[in-house]
Design a protein around this nucleic acid. Sequence first.
RNA 1: CGGGGCGUAGCGCAGCCCGGUAGCGCACCUGCUUUGGGAGCAGGGGGCCGCUGGUUCGAAUCCAGUCGCCCCGACCA
Length: 597
Amino acid sequence: MQRSGNINGSSAITYRPIDQPKEPFPAMRMSELVGHRYKERPAEATLESHALLLRGGYARQVANGIYSLLPAGLRVIRKIERIVREEMDRIGGQEVLMPLAQPRELWEESGRYQSVGPELARFKDRAGHDMVLAMTHEEGVVHLCRNEIHSYAQLPFMVYQIQTKFRDEPRSRGGLIRVREFTMKDGYSFHRTKEDLESYYMECFRAYERIFQRAGFSNVVAVEADSGMMGGKISHEFILLTEVGEDTIATCTETGYYANREVATGIIQGYAEAEQALEKVHTPNQKTIEEVAAFLGVQQHQTAKAVFYDSDEHGKPVIAVIRGDREICEPKLAKIIRAIPTPANDARIRGAGGVPGFASPLGLDKSKWRIVVDSTVATSNNLVTGANEADYHYKNFNLSRDLPGVETHDIAMIADGDRTPDDKGVIALQRGIEVGNIFQLGTKYTESMGMTYNDEAQQKCVPIMGCYGIGIGRMMSSIMEVHRDQYGPKWPMSVAPWQVHLNALKLNTPGVKEAAEKLYADLTAKGIEVLFDDRDERPGVQFADADLLGIPVRLIVGERNLKEGNIEWKRRDTGESGVVSIDTAIDFAIAGIASGK
RNA sequence: CGGGGCGUAGCGCAGCCCGGUAGCGCACCUGCUUUGGGAGCAGGGGGCCGCUGGUUCGAAUCCAGUCGCCCCGACCA
């Protein structure tokens, strides 16, 4: 299979089919399974998936945001990885493996040794060399590839890995959803042209849709995102919409608009009215928007508030102005001032002539301040704003009249009920978990790290990069969060740690053990991934454990049905159950597995 | 980094105010009885009461410090 859109004579990436037979994971006996399950909910778990992760014997915490995986958990992880590998291979990815520990020099080449904060773990090796633990592998991949690629004929290509990352997050939480050490699939593609990157980016986009669909997610949406510290322009996050998510997403099902709240734009209602004369009013000790609005008897949207930040890119203090009923979206502001907005302290504000609590862009020395006004202030009239004088505000501030020519941008945080950018729908905010992301990176890393190739005219060119991440452990916890009931997870067949859970009840009654052992042997011989509960446990214990292990198909050998030559079956997902003749049980299991659920 | 909470057996917790040398449930081990949704009885093992220092005749308990974990916020591919 060849990808269409062969650009500028460059060779395309060769896609590979994925229909090779899969090696089954080993069958095993529950009496030998390492990792116990328990009844009591762990105190530290706040999310259901976190509680089940621990209760089901999938993982154990070692330190804050650092986990070990037990066999049951690792099997789920391996299944997820298998799906990811197949889809990455299918779009022509080649698997590589780069180190977690890397020398400082590599990160100085890209500039990130300085630009990234304390979440980049740094240490010295025994020889005193500065080292880092990679939090992502752009540096690693450029280092790896820059000496392998010399000609345009070698582009494009994509390499990927499934490797540990370490990020010293200020705060991890939620089981495997947000951790410091985690496994990520990260892929990197290299292209000659922007167009080639864009077309491959879309291929990867579609591969991601297949991955999430195969892993059992029905409501993952791709949203426009902020590329943040990664650099680059276009990026998408794949967000699983769920109430327990940490990210907030602006969504509109009517128009299909989806964007991370950090970058979401929309149409915010304006309040236009006839301009009235500017008037200074005494507002003793009324500092917050709530206080001022109440004191003057106006709505919050009839005010403008000023928020101070330290230094734009030129070191000037920043005053951001927005209508009083709205919040500033700091990532948007960051792009405009080309610096991370950090709130300014009072001394800094006063030092430049501002009056905290009664601040306003009116009357500020424009040579000392970077003034950025949000569009909401432009679309409303007669606002109340500070007078830059203690205990005084102005009424009837009108931007175009009173502060003509000031820098006006969209720096507002979008809210429930705003109109979509095309004005055809209404935005609703939803919570979600970011399970993957893709970036059109550009040349940030290839350029800074000196990766070049020769084109047809012997000219040195810099490859254009894309990068593509998926959090493997985060996917596992997210699947558990979505597919579960009060008793445990309900693993989709594609990621289930085992395909069939075989119970033997009253193991020591005549015939039961023999029948179950034979079924276990036959299932195993057919290449079915079966977990055989061969313990002489009471039925309640066995069933509770089976629920916590969440295996899709359960087969129960018990005295009661065995008399008729039958065994019972039960589906973990639907709760359906029935009996089937022991002679056809294997075909029944195979059919259940083949149904893919 | 700011605010709050908690560290006592593998897990969940009581005891701490009011100081006297540690207890309950689950789990684990032995025996008997049980066996289709986390059984019953009997017996048993397991604790530097997070760590360090102080007060005291005596500290799980009071005081100081320190480390760790959890939650909220800030932060964040």
